[in-house]
Amino acid sequence: MTHVKKTDQLSGKVILITGGTSGLGRWTTLVTAAQGATVVYSGRNAEGAAETDRRLEAAGLKAECLPHDVTNEEDWRRVVDTVVERHGQLDGLVNNSGVSRLKSMDQMSLDDLEFLLSVNVDGMFLGTQHAFRVMKARGGSIVNISALNALRGSPNSTGYGMAKAGTTHLARAAAKEGQRYGIRANAVHPGVLFEDGDKASPGAIALFGEEGAQKFVQFNIDTTPLGRLGHPRDIGTAVAFLLSDAARHVSGAAVCVDGGRMAGEYMHHGIKSQK
């Protein structure tokens, strides 16, 4: 089901969202479009784009899709220039495209690390740089989608955590440097998300097997204070706020939309009970 609340919070804004062809990027596309923005989303997966378009249409919304490899600088130049040529400006960039590869310290190779850094860090760095290029004249808002792994250590996420910490810090640095141009930058840290009830995602099933994946889901519910997984729409709503003028003095923030996981020691209780 595609339920998004229509408002005019982002009307008049032109927003680019990377990775709008799946999951969180798709929902952020839906939410920002429903809030009145002119939305361009990008990605590499044509089937995913078709599904995003289908959901948009079902909700009576529109957004344009551009093919985009976020690790390629020429692609960034083309995508950002295309947005500005067609819509006259770029007010918001959501650096959403990211990849995860969970491996233990002894299993993780340098290739794995480089893969994680290239999409999660290089991609967001290039995006920030090209957004600055066109936002300097009239300001703008950049939102990096990070992860809780950026803010705390967790097993099997050495490379992922390092990369996501980079995206959080990139937002802080861009916030400081962007201040003189009226460019804001923030990072959003989602909790564990679901789209389809509390069922395990195909990705988790591939990693842990059917039974292991369901245990993984239950573990994440047990270690989330609010007692439920998050919906990508909840994250999209926070991203939309950060893109909007309501957040005009919010910059350099590490925003957690995580069901309270980062509020305190709660998740450690869960980890203990898991042993």
């Binding site: 204070p225 609010l226 910059s251 350099g252 925003v255 995580d258 309270g260 509020a263």
Partner: peptide, 17 residues
């Protein structure tokens, strides 16, 4: 609704560094 125990700076970037 999915945020709790969170602190959001409205400080023009002061706390970022």
């Amino acid at each position: 609704v999915y945020m709790s125990g969170m602190d959001l700076p409205v400080d023009g970037g002061f706390l970022a560094g």
